[in-house]
Every structure is written in structure tokens, then in C-alpha cells.
Design a protein around this nucleic acid. Sequence first.
DNA 1: TAGATTGTTAATCGATTAACAATC
DNA 2: TAGATTGTTAATCGATTAACAATC
Lengths: 207, 207
Amino acid sequence: MAKHEKISEAVVRRLPIYLRYLSYLQQVEVTTVSSQQMGKNLDVNPAQIRKDLAAFGDFGKKGIGYDVDYLVEKIREILKLTDEIRVALVGAGHLGHAISNYNAYLKDNMRIAAIFDNNQEKQGKKVAGIPIQPLSELEETIVNKQIKLAIITVPAPAAQSVCDQLTQAGIRGILNFAPTTIRAGKDVRIHYADVTSNLQSLAYYLT
Amino acid sequence: MAKHEKISEAVVRRLPIYLRYLSYLQQVEVTTVSSQQMGKNLDVNPAQIRKDLAAFGDFGKKGIGYDVDYLVEKIREILKLTDEIRVALVGAGHLGHAISNYNAYLKDNMRIAAIFDNNQEKQGKKVAGIPIQPLSELEETIVNKQIKLAIITVPAPAAQSVCDQLTQAGIRGILNFAPTTIRAGKDVRIHYADVTSNLQSLAYYLT
DNA sequence: TAGATTGTTAATCGATTAACAATC
DNA sequence: TAGATTGTTAATCGATTAACAATC
């Protein structure tokens, strides 16, 4: 923030990795860390870490390293995790259930605030305490609850339509588990997390 | 294969995306496709697609484009999807269950061939027809069943230990859903798919 | 033939790494 | 002070894109 360079997607993908390690250091009550130590533990070049962080401000002390608490605070600011971010989940199948129950991102100010599914039998039922709503209520709910991000766990053929409805409702970041490419305007960020593509590219490296 | 350039990870990550689109074209009985058409649908630069494919051989016809069936076959060869690839899943929690039941990669010659979990109550029970085994049987099973890839869906604190056991058993590709960095030798490929990091980096782009 | 599209080279762009002065 | 480590510049490396001859 202190500086105004263009931040590449690669940097933004590393920041949560740094944050995770730093949170771990807080747990084990380590108060200071060097880029070298971080790099060794995360398999990232130390110069890379210093450069990534320096793009947002001078967070370290020469000769000393980084204060863990301070750096955690700063990275959380950069990633906008200071206020709670509410997330919508679309698709209450096996995967949707698993993600809803998965408590890992209840930490760090992220919370699934609404779940949608068009299967009539599911509607009204609760997952992890959150009622499943029909997609007809998607836009209103997203606006009212100030939901900012969405996770798509519907089958591939439905993914594009869901994406359209989400962006229509103002969502600007989507994590897509459906095994299909979806398209949206340039102001919408889409990350892919589908298992098939991931496994297939791993297969390439076999022998 | 026809050529012997170093293939970057970026290319290998795009090949499954191409394959998925080409499979779709097969379904709708389109027999020929140009790099332009592919690029438009997948949000990839057409020159990029041509360069990616040309690194493995001359698959296209000037003035015509690519034969869909032929290109599918070639990409499957490149990704080593011609023979069945067996996958182990470690961690039979919600997420493990969801992935096991998810049939998407039963297609394309991928199959979950074994499931491991150290929870005694789960052992012997079946998920999607596959019995849950204790981790003590991991190495033997992986060797016997010629399992080549693994998916980690255990809690973060257990992930590194599981990774060590997997690599010890000969696994060379791991898809890690646990929200932690894991380390292995350079001959082991690790892809990350954890929800938390993905959502956190999306948060950066919010206004 | 004329139009289309590949494969490939060259140009551009961006990301990573090495090196080191500044300084705690 | 001496040792350590940052922030930053310059060098390197790699990936993307534009352009076009070859050719179907």
C-alpha cells in the first residue's frame, strides 16, 4: 500500500502462504523471522519474499528480520482480511457439504454466509447451520448479506449460468470447483480448483 | 514428444484445459477446431495454444486447424492418460468422501484405487465401494496396486507425515488439500488445492 | 486460386534471482 | 564494532504475444 506498483498475481498467491507460516510462528511463540528462514520452510527464494513484501511497505528491520506479529497484521491488511469477508457457496452436493463443514477458513475472517442449491429436496435443510436456499434468492441474499466472494460446486453444465448470476449480483471473486472453464468480465477474478485438471497435469510428470 | 524442449509447468497446466474443451467438442460432434476458436472459448491467446501444442509435434493442418479426435488422442498421450492411472486418497473426512464420490475423474483413465485413514472407527468401512485402510498398509498397498498419484485430505498437522509416507512408498505426484505447505524431494510434484489460500488471494482483488 | 490457419521466429513483457549498499 | 539481514538495483531467466512465411 505504501507503494504503488502493479502487484502480480504470483505475489498475491504467495501472500496467503506467508500468512499461514507466520500464523504458525505466532502459535509457537516465535516473534521474529528472517526472509531466509521463511524461504527455507516454504521453498521460496528469500529475495523473492523480501521483494514481495517490500512492494507494500518497509516491514522489516535491517540486520534483524521481520516482527512476526507486525507482519501478520500487515499481510492481513493487504489481503483485506481485517473485516469479515462473507462467502456464498453454490451447490450443496458432497463437495459443497465438505467445504461448508470444513472450518479452516472460519479463521482469518472468512465465513460462508449463504448456501444455494436448486434441488427442491435440499431446500430449507441446513448445512453447518446454514439453510440451503433456491437460486432464485441468490441475488437478493448476496446484496443484503454483503457477500463478496463465491464458491461454485455445482456440476459442470450449470457452472456458467451460476457464474453469470453471481456476477450479476455483484460478486467479483469466484473459486470454481466445477470441471469446466467459466467466463466473466475482466473485473471478475476466477480461480480454479477442480480436481481433474490438477490430477491430469500431475500425471504428465510421471516417469 | 516429437520435440525435446523443456516444457514449462504453465504449459502442462493448460493441456488439461485444452483436453476438456476438446472432449466437449467431441460430444457435440465438432470434428475440426482452430486455435482461434479454442482461444476464444478458453480465454487463452491463440498463439499460445499453437506454441504449446507445437512443442509436442505438428498436430495441426495449415489453413484447416486441428482434427479434434486426433488432438484429443495426442494430448492424452502427452499427459500419460492412455493407461489407467491409479490414485490413493489419504484422509476419509468430509472432503475425502466428497472427492471419492465425485465421479469426474473416473473419466480419462483416472481412478481412486485406495483410501487411507487412521481413524479406527472408519477402518473397514467403504466409501464409493473402496474400503478404508489404516496408514500402516499404505506402502504395501501403493506398491501392490501400482498407485502413482495421491490426494491428501487430512488435517494440516498430519499432512507432512503423510507426504513423507507417500514419497517413501514411491508416489511422485501429490494433490494437497490440507491448508499447509508440505515439502518433498525435487522428484516429487506437489500441487496445492486448499480452499483457504485460494479464497484469501481472491480477497486481495476486492475493490 | 483465394482465404484461412498453422508452426515458428523475433519482440515484448514480466517474473525470478543475485548482489550489495545501507543499517540495525 | 562485527555480523546479520533488509530493501533495491541490475542481471537473468522464462513466458507471452505479434507477426508472417509456409501451405492446406
